[in-house]
Structure formats: structure tokens, C-alpha cells
Write a protein that binds this DNA or RNA. Structure first.
Lengths: 209, 209
DNA sequence: TAGATTGTTAATCGATTAACAATC
DNA sequence: TAGATTGTTAATCGATTAACAATC
């Protein structure tokens, strides 16, 4: 029952996965929840409970087989079945994301970016296209794309969001610092830089006095 | 007592602030928790409780004065007292962050970026410097910088992190997809793209079948 | 005054942690 | 067998929500 997985568990799974993948092949074959908990300063029971939602191959006294656990996590997180995505907004950030080829390892394939500015159209050094937004609808429906990435300025974010939803986008990764209004079946994940900064600055305020 | 504010409350405050700032000056002078709750699909009591941690100027029947609330939020979140920061890693992402001037409005001033690669040294179009890492220690201690941004590849992230801590950095904004080991008084905020992608892909898995 | 809205106290809900039996 | 480690059930903790008195 991989249905009702809690958001907090889901947020820790990729962290475990990253760590497991970073382990040298030559090191241990197996890893215990105690070890994992130690490296992340978490409770060991919490780790076990998290892992229980993706695997039941933990063995008492031995722990979890690292390579099977990696596979199970990748499977569960969907890193194996690649999802196509598009970007609207080919500014600095949009281009950085478009050119970054590290998303592939997380099962994300950015097909192209779109922009209204004619001057920005063309190809990135990596060979990805920046296309005029008037082609957006075409390409989106033809390729059945379900993930949209928003990297436009705040003012146009909601309009771009609506356009995405009209064209079948189901999950939105929003880098614009604003709240987006969407129907309940659409997921918006806000990459909220302001929030991140608030955490940093709050920490400093309490630790530098 | 702005001490024991919960992390979940702290994460919502910047969202309120952004929204309040986006309201046209000409619109309402006052806003109620009911309205705020409506636009963010939150409980109204939750909003009131959040706001209570930064303000006690809410008036029954009237609500909160928008402009005072903005000031109180900015104050609380530290957007007024600017914090200097440095970046290590002047790759594509590092440069995008360095060149982005929108952080200023959140009280973050990125002083410079550092890199080991001689070819990357110089100035950005915006006039910010990319400096050799051997100068890092100098500049950091001279300017008393407390925020470090990590945009190096995974392999060097821990080393860079250690170097930052040695030079007085207290809060780290980590874009490298890896866990960093730090002493308990140091804050690491992971900008975890893998986690974001996991949320998107999990949503799709459950909504496209 | 009546009604909308605040702020607070108590109840609920969900996630984390503790305790422990099962087992390799 | 003894000990380390898993998985699960019960207790605790914290955050959200409900109920309600205070007040402009």
C-alpha cells in the first residue's frame, strides 16, 4: 500500500537514496537503520518506518541490502520511468535549469523551454530548444507532457500557470515567488527562495547575538 | 516572545508577506485572516495564530492593517537588516544566483562568488566578482560574512562546507544534492531538487492512472 | 445594538518516539 | 545460544482545528 505515504516520509526518501548511491561500491553490502539514522541525525525507528513503506527486505541482524534498497527507492520515487517536462520562461534561471543535465538521474527530462521574447529563441549550448510560446499548446498536447516548470517573473506567473493547466499539465514546479491558484487536482510545488532565506536569517538572528 | 516559533509557521510567514506586498496600494487598507486563509486554502485560525507571532495589531471586525502587517513581517523575517553572503561554485547555477538581484528584497546581499577554476574568474555582467577560492578565507573574515551558498558538485560539497565553517559561516544554503555533516550550531538548508521532483512524480503516479 | 472578526483555551489529529516481541 | 536488528503496537509530542468569549 504505497498510497497514503506521509509527506514527511516522502521528503526523506530521496535523501536516503542520494546517500545510498554515494556509498562506494566496495563498502558494505548491507546497511542498518541505525547507521542511516546516525548520518542524518534521525531516530532509527523513523528510518525503519520510512523504509518499510518502500521495502520489506530488511533482515534482522543484517539490515538492508544496499543495492536492492536503491532499486526499491528509485522505483518508488519514479526515477526509472522518465517524465517529460517543459519550462516557460527562458531567463537566467530557466536557462540554467534547461541546461542542467542532472535532472535525468531523477527521471525528469526537460524537453524544451518557451519564452515570449523573440531574442531568447534558439538553442542552448547543450542543444535544447527555446521556442516561442505560441507553439506551447501544440507541443504540449502532441508530446502529452504533464510537468511544467515556471520561471517567469511574478506578474506573469498566474497566466502561465493557467495556460499550462489548459494544456494538460498536472504538476507544476513554480520558481516564481508567488502563490498560484489552481484546481484541486493540480499539484503546485513552490521552490520558495524567500522561505529558504527566512530560515537562514531567522537562524542568524538567534545565533549571532 | 519571537523565540519558539514553529518551523511550519515560519514557513508560511514569507508566503503571507509576498501576497500582501503584491496587493495593489489602491485596494483595501485592511485584510482579515478569513481572506488570507481563503487565498491560501488554509484554516483561518491557523492564519490568525501565525500572524499572532509577529503582530498584535489585529482588530476585531476590521482585521489587520496591510501596510503595518507588511512592516511587521519584514521586520520579523529580517528582510530589513541585510545579510551578506558568499557563493562557492561559479558554475551555471552559481552564476545565476550571483547575477540575480532579486535577493536584495529579502535582505540578502551576495558579495561575491568563488571558484577553483581559473577560467571562471572575472566579473559577471552585473559587476559581481568571481574570485579564486584561495582568497575565500581573507574576504570572509574581513567582511564578517555569516551566510554561505554552496553550488559545487556533490563530490566537493562537504569540503567546501568545512571550509565555510572554519571561516565563520553560520548558515549554509546548500544546492548540492547531498547531506552535509555540520556541528549542531550551524544551520544547513538544503535546496533539494531531488525532493521536489519526488513530490511531482509521486503526484503524477497517483493521478495519471 | 448586532455582527464580524480577533485571540485563546480545549479537543483532535497526525507524526515521532518508546517499548517490545520476532528473528536471523 | 546470544546479540543485533527488524517490524509493530502503544505512548508521547506537537501542530492543526474547533469552540467560544472578548471587542470594535
Amino acid at each position: 500500500m504505497q498510497k497514503g505515504i506521509s509527506k514527511s516520509t516522502l521528503s526523506r526518501l530521496p535523501v536516503y537514496l542520494q546517500y545510498l548511491k554515494s556509498l562506494p561500491k566496495s563498502s558494505t553490502d548491507n546497511i542498518s537503520s541505525t547507521m542511516l539514522a546516525g548520518t542524518f541525525c534521525l531516530g532509527e525507528v523513523q528510518v525503519r518506518k520510512d523504509l518499510a513503506s518502500v521495502s520489506n527486505a530488511g533482515k534482522p541482524k543484517i539490515g538492508y541490502n544496499v543495492s536492492s534498497l536503491i532499486l526499491e527507492l528509485e522505483n518508488f520515487l519514479g526515477y526509472n520511468n522518465v517524465n517529460d517536462a517543459v519550462i516557460i520562461g527562458a531567463g537566467r534561471l530557466g536557462k540554467a535549469l534547461l541546461g542542467f543535465n542532472g535532472f535525468r538521474q531523477y527521471g525528469l527530462n526537460i524537453v524544451a523551454a518557451f519564452d515570449v521574447d523573440e531574442n531568447k529563441l534558439g538553442k542552448t549550448p547543450e542543444g535544447k530548444s527555446i521556442i516561442t510560446v505560441s507553439e506551447f499548446s501544440n507541443i504540449c498536447s502532441r508530446l502529452k507532457i504533464h510537468i511544467g516548470i515556471i520561471t517567469v517573473p511574478t506578474e506573469s506567473a498566474q497566466a502561465v500557470c493557467n495556460q499550462m493547466i489548459e494544456n494538460g499539465i498536472l504538476a507544476i514546479w513554480n520558481f516564481a515567488p508567488t502563490h498560484l491558484d489552481v484546481p484541486p487536482n493540480i499539484l503546485v510545488h513552490n521552490e520558495n527562495m524567500a522561505l529558504s532565506l527566512a530560515l537562514l536569517s531567522n537562524h542568524l538572528k538567534e545565533n549571532t547575538k
